[in-house]
């Protein structure tokens, strides 16, 4: 196993940031930690990268214990924190050379690994990091995290606040990196990105809700889901909220995802109810659960 986490807990004063977390990541796996802001994702990253000690539990990365062998872990992993943390007043190239040097290597030695990403920012190699755009900063940070050829790469919310196009490009980059036999442990609040991981852990309020492949997590959704729409969305949300057979009703783009409390529920009942409430252009269709549906059901 590349990463083993056993019963890790961490509190800050009264606040329990992590509550008895356990998980395993296989070598070469792209593992996603999926959860909102405040779920405890960053705390787990800081524990695994040996920057923070847990209150309880044990963990190892690449076979090294996070407490006893912290120095070995630091040499073997790459870490890209959520907040941009390169030297703003060094140039692109200086930053990269700095990170190569402190890990006892050179840019040349591992250039192959970063070529794909670095060529995109190489035209700006003499620009100070502080003056790069968000997307370029992200590529530089990833290059710096990779320059010593780590066995495990930790990426804490690399795509938060990033637009859908740049997010797509970033994930394509990760997929290519994965082929170079690097284990990738990545966190994100975007549920659609969960689909791109080999395995995911859904986390909220310091607890893991479920760990599995994205397919298995979607398949585990316990109810039939219907996508519903009518000509008046706002009224539809309100009317579904007061319908006596509603288990859940959440907006999903142009539809509302609806589940019923009745196991023998028939869509025709809902259509009748909506008609009685003066809705037009009513549509009720069975649909498949997404990761987000499952997340909301589990955290309800």
């Amino acid at each position: 196993m590349s990463i083993i986490v056993k019963n890790i807990s961490k509190s800050y004063g009264q606040v329990k940031a992590l509550d008895d977390i356990s998980l395993e990541v296989r070598p070469g796996e792209l593992f996603g930690l999926i959860g909102p802001d405040g779920a405890g994702k960053t705390t787990l990253f800081r524990i695994l990268t040996t920057l923070l000690l847990p209150n309880e539990g044990t963990a190892s990365v690449n076979g090294f214990d996070i407490v006893k062998d912290y120095k070995s872990i630091r040499n073997n992993v790459g870490y890209m924190p959520g907040r941009f943390s390169l030297y703003q007043d060094l140039t692109v190239e200086e930053n990269l050379r700095f990170f190569a040097t402190i890990f006892g290597t050179t840019i040349k030695e591992n250039y192959d690994l970063i070529r794909d990403i670095y060529v995109q920012i190489e035209p700006f190699k003499n620009r100070r990091a502080g003056r790069l755009s968000g997307g370029m900063k992200q590529k530089l940070a990833l290059s710096c995290a990779l320059i010593h050829k780590p066995k495990v790469l930790f990426l804490d919310e690399p795509t938060t606040g990033v637009d859908p196009v740049s997010r797509k490009e970033f994930w394509e980059m990760l997929k290519r990196l994965q082929k170079q036999n690097i284990t990738i442990f990545v966190s994100t609040p975007y549920m659609d990105e969960a689909e791109l991981c080999d395995k995911i852990a859904l986390i909220t309020d310091g607890k893991i809700l479920q760990i599995n492949t994205p397919e298995a997590i979607k398949a585990s959704f316990p109810k039939k889901i219907y996508k519903v729409r009518s000509s008046e969305t706002f009224k539809l949300i309100q009317d579904l909220g007061t319908y006596n057979k509603t288990h859940s009703a959440y907006p999903f783009g142009e539809y509302i995802h609806f589940t019923s409390t009745q196991s023998d529920f028939q869509p025709s009942e809902l259509i009748d109810y909506l008609k009685a409430n003066k809705h037009n252009q009513i549509e009720v269709l069975e649909t498949n659960a997404t990761i987000e549906d499952t997340f909301m059901e589990l955290s309800k």
């Binding site: 909102p36 802001d37 938060t160 909220t204 907006p251 955290s299």
Partner: peptide, 10 residues
């Protein structure tokens, strides 16, 4: 709503 959990986001 950046980073907000899915239920609160809705």
């Amino acid at each position: 709503t950046g980073g907000v959990d899915p239920i609160t986001r809705r």
